[in-house]
């Protein structure tokens, strides 16, 4: 009996220590807090471009499940898409070669990221930059550096062809699937309020786009909502995208706050691509609307 009471007490103490310790220790935390992640590495030295040159590789986070933007080809294991090309262009600038050479010589080391993982991976230095349909927001600018936007997109709603939905007003009682850590949920709620639509919808959050797509085709959710560029890659003859465009957002290439030299190079590459019209060619080359 005594032993049992003791063990209960120990367990309780552990819990209290965990919670108490965490809050009382807050005074020695001098890092600025931001809404979007385990930041801010402001006290970290800028390793500069030399570190990347020494490593011989630029480490880039891209999406692996967004056709035309960042997709890992399941047959070859190669990464392909607009954002992959942008990464090669940045590598080309750093190493002083052409983008084609950068690709041939394997100067970019890609890693798949999700909305949930891309911020922390930038912060801990695992990645040099992220080009992964990363929407620029004021909040996120506090945590990371963003380049000039290279693509502007809106949110879209995709449903099954057989569902009979025509516009957003038909969605009363529907279950809308969104990606975890994305801004979609708030944007939809804001749009419904703004349009004064008299509908009630339920949200369910999933870990990735393939999971969302599977949930839609198996009938577990009524609507799959995410950026239109991403939706386009999942749209086939059983599905359709509703006409509403809302929640316009801009994608930028993100770098860690401390990586000042790299940020400048990225900015230069992106603005050059935009001003030379090369970006438009790349976008249409990937079949993006």
């Amino acid at each position: 009996m005594k032993k049992r009471v003791l063990s209960m007490l120990m367990a309780l103490m552990m819990v209290v220590a965990l919670l108490g310790g965490c809050s009382s220790g807050s005074k020695d935390s001098d890092t600025a807090t931001t809404a979007a992640g385990e930041t801010t590495a402001g006290n970290t030295e800028d390793p500069g471009l030399q570190a990347i040159k020494d490593a011989g590789k630029l480490k880039v986070g891209v999406k692996v499940d967004v056709p035309s933007f960042g997709l890992q080809n399941t047959a070859t294991g190669e990464y392909e898409g607009l954002e992959v090309d942008i990464a090669y262009a940045v590598a080309a600038e750093i190493f002083g070669v052409t983008p084609e050479e950068a690709k041939e010589q394997g100067l970019v080391e890609f890693q798949g990221v999700t909305a949930k993982t891309r911020g922390p991976l930038l912060d801990n230095g695992e990645l040099n930059l992220v080009a992964a349909t990363f929407t620029i927001t004021e909040e996120r600018k506090l945590s990371w550096n963003f380049s000039t936007p290279y693509y502007e997109d809106a949110l879209g709603l995709m449903c099954l062809e057989s569902s009979g939905y025509e516009t957003m007003a038909d969605l009363d009682g529907a279950i809308i699937g969104v990606a975890q850590g994305a801004t979609t949920k708030d944007a939809i709620a804001a749009y419904i309020a703004e349009q004064g639509l008299d509908i009630e919808v339920e949200f369910q959050e999933f870990d990735g786009y393939p999971a969302l797509s599977a949930a839609l085709s198996s009938g577990n959710i009524d609507v799959f909502s995410v950026d239109r560029a991403i939706l386009a890659g999942y749209n086939d003859d059983t599905t359709k995208i509703l006409p509403e465009r809302f929640g316009t957002q801009e994608y930028g290439v993100a770098t860690a706050l401390y990586a000042k030299e790299l940020t400048e190079v990225v900015e230069k590459v992106v603005t050059d691509l935009l001003s030379s019209g090369e970006m438009d060619k790349m976008i249409s080359g990937w079949g993006i609307e």
Partner: peptide
């Protein structure tokens, strides 16, 4: 949690991914 099941892990995982910090898991 893997099929948006509305259980404890599902909600904590959402809270963590929306906020970007790990308190929700604890």
């Amino acid at each position: 949690a893997l099929v948006a099941g509305g259980d404890l892990m599902y909600h904590s995982d959402n809270i963590v991914s929306n906020s970007g910090f790990l308190q929700g898991y604890i």
